[in-house]
Structure formats: C-alpha cells, structure tokens
Design a protein around this nucleic acid. Structure first.
Length: 423
RNA sequence: GGAGAGAUGCCAGAGUGGUUGAAUGGGACGGUCUCGAAAACCGUUAUACCCGCAAGGGUAUCGAGGGUUCGAAUCCCUCUCUCUCCGCCA
C-alpha cells in the first residue's frame, strides 16, 4: 500500500512509474485518493473543532454542577446535545472517507523502481546475467515426469488418490532428495546470517492483509472455513507478519530471517499446457529468505540476496539466468523483482525457481512496520524477500540435466545430505 | 467439546461516571555523584490523524464495534482474543 504522503506530495512520480506497469486505472485512482483525502481532512477539521467545543462544555457542566448552578448547566446541556447530532453525522462521513481511502489504496500497485523497464509481459523482461552451460543430453533422455515414474521416486497417481491433482507423493530417494535440498538450503541460509524460523503454515486474516495476499488473491489461497485460517502460499506471509505492528530499534537492523515451509497454492484457473509434472503444484516446499532494513540499505541488500540465491544455483551446478522483470510482469507489491530461472534440459525450457523482490515501504506501510531513527522519529522500513529456493523445479532440472544412461547424478554439494551419489 | 476467569502504557499493576493519557513499581534512556562502576538522587519515557513555517494547539486511542450520559478506562450490549480447570489428543 502506497503511503498517503507519497500520493499527496508526488502524484506525478507515481503516475509516471505506474505507466511502466501498463496500469491503466492509475490516473483515476490517484485522483480519487487525493480528492477523497481532501474531503477527509476537511471533515476531520470541522469534526475536531466541534468535539473540542463539546468537550470543553462538558467540563464546564461538571464545574457548574459542583457549584450548584443547575440552571446554567441545563442551558449548556442543550447546546451540547445539539452539537452531538452534528458530531454523529460528521463521524459517519469521516469513516466513509476512511473506508474509501483504504479501498482505493488497496487497488494501486507499488511504483516500480527507476531501473525497472516498462513492459507488458514476460517478453519484456531483461536478462541481466546468465551462468553455466546448457547440457547436451544423451539420446533417449526423458523429461522429468517420465524419469520420476521410471525411477519410482515421485508419484502423482498416489497423490491423486489421497488428496488430488498437484499433490505429489515423494518416495524413497525422491523423498530423501527433498529432505536433502531443504537442509542444504537452510544450512546455506544460516551460513549467510539468516536466523532460522519455523512458522505455522496457517495464518489469520490480518496476516493475509499484512503482506498483501488479501484482499486481491483471496481465491489463490486454501481457506479453512471452520477456523477462518488460510494455508500459507509462501513462508513470506508468516515470517514477515512476525513484524506486523512492530517498531524496531535501529541497532536491530537489518533483520534476517529464513524458514522452510510447505507452500499451498490453489492455482485456480492456471492449469493447462506447460504445467506438467513438477512445473506447477498445489503443495510444494520452499526455503524463503526475508529481510527488513532501513530504506537506504535495501538496494544493497537486494543485491546481497540475489547473490545468495545465485550462489545456491552455482553450487547445485545448474545453468541459470537472472531476469530483471519489467513493470507489467512484476507482482503487485513489488518495487523491483529479479527472477532466477534454471534451464531444464529435457523440456528445453527455463523454469522460474526464485523471485527476489524489494517491496520498499509498500508492505511495511500495511504492516505498520517501523523503526526509531537517530532523531527517535518513527519511520517505515523496507521489506525484501526471495526464494532460496523453491524445490520442485530445482528437482525437475536436476533430474533432467543430470540424467545419464546409468541414472541421475547427484551434485557433489548435496551428497553429504542425500547419502547417495546417484538415483 | 464442557465450565470459569480475564483483556489498561515497554513490562507488572491500580483505577467502578467529571482536568485520568491514565496512580504506583520495574525496565530503558539522559543527568548528578564517582578515577570508573554500583548504589542513591533528579529528569525523560506512547501512537495516529488534523491545523500551523515554527513554537504550539486540537482530536482519537485503556482488546474491537455499538449503546446509555452534558460527560465513559469506569455502566449496558455484541464480537474477538487470551488464560485456567475438565475432556480428547501427537
């Protein structure tokens, strides 16, 4: 959620930035906020003055009663009663303006950072870095959905039997590979200075609003009706919400947390081509890294986080490319996003395995996440997060790229975790 | 699932209708004292919004929402959450 101050003081910068997202309603919405805000302030002004008068009068009545001047008190009472009616109607319109303000603000996406290119779709993203060699596979090489059947390590049919499509069952070396990757990612995060967090995998409504999944993406989350809880689509939600309504001290920054959780996504309406096998699931595992920092540090930290993710991919010996997303392909909350994609050799496709974003104050404003600066003024912080990493597509790429006629070769760095060198 | 208790400032905890944004204690911060520290003493210690160049002023907030009243932390209603005991249970 953009801050009102920003909207009020620099609407031109916002409109200019939102053009890069190809966000058509920008002008209308910004105008609405500014106008609504003007009316809100006007109303609050008269309301406050009226309340001030009635407060003072009430105090006077108390004094008059004490000194036994009942008649004067009665006269004042009448005038206060009259004010009260006005106060009530002004309060109603004030809360109407406040409600409008939130509703409009929820509809305006974050303003892209200066270096984010304009664009409409994934085709306008910019490849800023690539690494590794795309492997040439032996003849008879298979896509991962064939490999997992042949090796009997990941079973979609069993998942369908006990849950539904998109909930695979990992078996034997398949399950152990999952556990190995999770532990590897967590250990690497720990080495990089992240504190490990194990959050709940369900969150309440307030948390959904805090990180911006609600109200927009309501249909994308699984919802437990009986208890009003949402299954988390990413560990970003619980881990960032730990800091909802928090004022940090400057010396606690930056906050670096990381956590492994299963992630649940309904992916409503997004099934079809290109989503075979592990490419898109309803439940998957992911290690997420989350940082909270002072505004002036966030772009340095964004680079640091990207470097961490790239390091993981390099250690896993996976060819990858790093994309700077264009305005139109970026998430609603993000000011800038880098995607990491690995090459999946049998599918001959790039697969997104990580998304590293700086939200600047956009999330912090909703979360009321602030810090006290040196002048002991409270100021909004910046939040960032990134996948480090999401498992299924990593597994898909590992299986496809590392297949040999004799089996799947496990990357060296993982062997201490898996306890085996090939599948 | 059954029964009960509670929700007040950073924390603990008082306050049952009229200068109560809120006693008191603790913590934290600043100062005095000290070579330094401890102790003691003094002081400071909320957030949001509005008006204002500023100084400053106003409004709201004692879980949330509504009601009674000229006036509510205090009375009434609804909701939420937490805790305790019992039950169930990894």
């Amino acid at each position: 959620m953009l801050t009102l101050q920003f909207l009020r003081e620099q609407p031109d910068i916002i409109l200019e930035g939102l053009k890069k997202r190809n966000f058509k309603e920008a002008e209308t919405l910004v105008q609405q906020v500014v106008e609504n805000d003007r009316l809100r302030r006007e109303t609050q002004n008269t309301l406050d003055a009226l309340k001030a008068r009635s407060n003072a009068d009430s105090k006077k009545i108390g004094e008059l009663m004490k000194t036994g001047k009942a008649e004067e008190a009665a006269a004042l009472r009448a005038s206060v009663a009259a004010d009260k009616d006005k106060i009530k109607s002004l309060e109603e319109s004030l809360s109407e303006y406040e409600k409008n303000q939130i509703e409009i603000l929820y509809k305006i996406p974050n303003v892209p950072a200066a270096i984010v290119p304009a664009g409409k779709s994934a085709e306008d993203n910019i490849t800023v870095h690539s690494h590794g060699i795309i492997p040439t596979l032996h003849s008879g090489a298979l896509p991962h959905w064939e490999l997992i059947k042949k090796l009997d390590i990941i079973d979609f049919d069993l998942g369908i039997k006990i849950a539904g499509a998109g909930f695979p069952v990992y078996k034997g070396k398949g399950a152990r590979l999952q556990r190995a990757l999770i532990n590897f990612f967590l250990d690497e995060a720990n080495k990089a200075g992240y504190r490990e967090i194990q959050p709940p995998v369900v969150v309440n409504e307030a948390s959904g609003y805090g990180t911006g999944q609600l109200p927009d993406k309501e249909g994308q989350m699984y919802f437990v009706n009986a208890d009003g809880l949402y299954l988390i689509p990413t560990a970003e939600v619980p881990i960032t919400n730990l800091y909802r309504d928090v004022i940090l001290n400057e010396d606690e920054l930056p906050v670096k947390n990381a956590g492994y959780t299963p992630c649940f996504r309904r992916e409503a309406g997004s099934w079809g081509a290109h989503v075979r096998g592990l490419n898109r699931l309803h439940q998957f595992d992911k290690v997420e890294i989350v940082q909270i920092c002072k505004p002036e540090d966030s772009y340095r930290i964004l680079d640091e986080m990207c470097a961490h993710v790239q390091g993981l991919l390099e250690k896993l010996e996976l060819p990858y490319r790093k994309l700077l997303l264009c305005g139109g392909d970026m998430g609603f909350n993000s000011a800038i996003t880098y995607d990491m994609e690995v090459y999946s050799a049998a599918q001959q496709r790039w697969l997104e395995v990580s998304s590293v974003s700086n939200f600047e104050t956009f999330q912090a404003n909703r979360l009321k996440l602030r810090y006290k600066n040196k002048e002991s003024k409270t100021q909004l912080l910046h939040t960032l997060n990134g996948s480090a990493l999401a498992l299924p597509r990593i597994v898909a790429a590992l299986l496809e790229n590392n297949q040999t006629p004799d089996g799947i070769r496990i990357p060296k760095v993982l062997v201490p975790y898996t306890g085996f060198e090939s599948i």
